[in-house]
Design a protein around this nucleic acid. Structure first.
Lengths: 144, 144
DNA sequence: GTTAAATATATCGCACACGATTAAATCGCA
DNA sequence: TGCGATTTAATCGTGTGCGATATATTTAAC
């Protein structure tokens, strides 16, 4: 009986995504470090720059993260003075996350990051956009 | 002066990869859980099924992980009886990781995972392969 | 109106990732 | 040969992710 065979790691789509995600975070790292941010913290700020005052649940929906990940992350952002957290007065179960002045100013300081990433990718914006849509389609299929 | 604008999180390629990686790990989870494995542990085993007796450094090269991640992970695999770790007698700096019988048998028990993932992806093998190559190209560009 | 079910967030424990540092073994070169 | 430089793992500290659970609030059923 022959030994079972397994696709080499380098040819597995799951590993492509896994390693590309790491490479992407590595590409962001020096720029985010200069702003004192981690990558997930940056994603939270991006989401808040788009819509301020979101609840923890809304942020979780946008980033596909649970409160057990977001709560400590948001506390760290609050400790840095970038956001404020407050219970919603209408529904005290919910916690609304608002940008502080410093948090809003961070948007300008981070403004050239996307361009730098585009450049590091060595791809055209059109190619990246097409790739993004394919990756999103795969993700949405996997989510069921 | 208008407020600076930032691309919505849903349109950022970095977030596509980030969320697709999470969705992929979520798809693997029930199957790996049945084998008592985490996703990174599974990747290590896949690598060893392809080439047994790799050093920690070789595994790190294949998976793009450092020893500070691999060492505790490998210790957990060793504690489960799936691998053995031993210093190379020729070069005692290196630690070689070998599959145990149980670790080898796991390959057969995991044999139908790739097919299940392919099915969950809802894509043809050709489409997935093409997407993989594009993602790999982006990753390799980002690595520089 | 009281109480059970549902909802939203927080807490706890475990397993990655990774920067920085340490320790041991090997290599290289005078 | 000897000794500094390099290589290889391991260790330490911080920050995610996430399953399981706890707590508080709101909703719904009666």
């Amino acid at each position: 009986m022959p030994a079972p065979t397994t696709l080499p790691i380098s040819e597995m789509i799951c590993f492509s995504l896994y390693s590309a995600t790491h490479a992407m975070q590595h590409a962001y790292k020096p720029m985010l470090e200069a702003l004192g941010l981690t990558y997930p913290q940056y994603l939270v700020l991006v989401s808040l720059w788009g819509e301020d005052g979101q609840t923890v649940g809304q942020l979780g929906q946008a980033l596909q993260l649970e409160s057990n990940t977001l709560t400590p992350l948001l506390k760290r952002l609050e400790a840095q003075g970038l956001v404020a957290r407050a219970r919603d007065s209408r529904d005290e179960r919910q916690v609304r996350v608002s940008l502080t002045g410093v948090g809003r100013d961070m948007q300008a300081r981070a403004a050239d990051i996307p361009g730098c990433i585009l450049e590091k990718s060595g791809m055209t914006l059109a190619a990246l956009t097409a790739l993004r849509d394919q990756v999103n389609a795969l993700r949405d299929q996997l989510r069921g």
